[in-house]
Amino acid sequence: MTETRVHFYQVGSFAVGNRLLSDADRTVQASRERTNSLDAGHRACQGCGEALGARYALDAAMRATGGRLVAVNATGCLEVFSTPFPETSWRIAWLHSLFGNAPAVATGVAAAMRAKGRDDVRVVGQAGDGGTVDIGFGALSGMFERHDDVLFICYDNEGYMNTGVQRSAATPPTARTATSEAVGADPGNVFGQGKDLPRIAMAHDIPYVATATVADLHDLERKVERAMTFRGARYLHVLVPCPLGWGAASADTVRLARLAAESGFFPVFEAEHGVVTGVRRIRRRVGVEEYLRPQRRFAHLFAGEGRPDLVARLQLIADANVERYGLAPEEE
């Protein structure tokens, strides 16, 4: 008589945990023993995707490193809402210096650890998209190029939210921000290439580059864990919806991240040594409109007669991503 193990679980591959899963198959977040690197009492807005993404990523990094972790934080929402004197929400060794220098500060920490023979201590640098793709870009590229032993994580909420929702180089075309108002013939942010930092990171030939969202925790944690198996510069780009900046319901944070990936508008993939090695294929493909509509920053695309021409251009971006990374759902 042959015995076959039943591999299928009712929510096994998608939910945070499940009583039926073995411990190894559960996420770090499913465990009561998780670090809670970012603890309760922080002052992030309701439904903050960045607070979620930071805890996800750092708790996973804490598990991967056995708690031997130091985090360096750029200025931004995450820093401001986590450490207003006299309270901090961090439960890990954490340093904030400036807005544009987190990659370099992280390099310094890593260098100090190496000089002191503390190879067991690993370093994570983290910033929002402004601190990563804009003001911190030079420092980040330098860190990549030198191959410093740092995992840098960008929590991308597609704008300068801490300062009141201004445009960054990661803001998608047509999105309304306080510096790209939804007025005139070309409302919202301009159409352009944006600054596709994951691909720029890949161009540095660093050992590991990945994107993820707060909607797929298993994928995100696996990528952090994978990143920690490499030494040298690594980059993780996590999409973290911002209810305030995106004009979305606080309950929709995870849903929007999911729609971003499922529409192809935000490609989820990983690359090693400059070569794409894996993509998270779309499971239930949706048009970009389904992703855009719940967000007030895109409301001008749908008000009145709407701007189907602009929506179509945004759809082309998603289609190009699907094509470039091979994101199309598997054939039935």
């Binding site: 340093l95 400036l98 544009g100 370099a104 100090a112 330098g142 030198r146």
Partner: peptide, 23 residues
């Protein structure tokens, strides 16, 4: 650790990180 940084801004920033880590 001798680090060839990409700018003076990074030079001081790396120094900050290193110093905060006890070096």
């Amino acid at each position: 650790e001798f680090i060839n940084v990409e700018s003076e801004y990074a030079a001081m920033s790396v120094s900050i990180g290193a110093s905060a880590a006890g070096a």
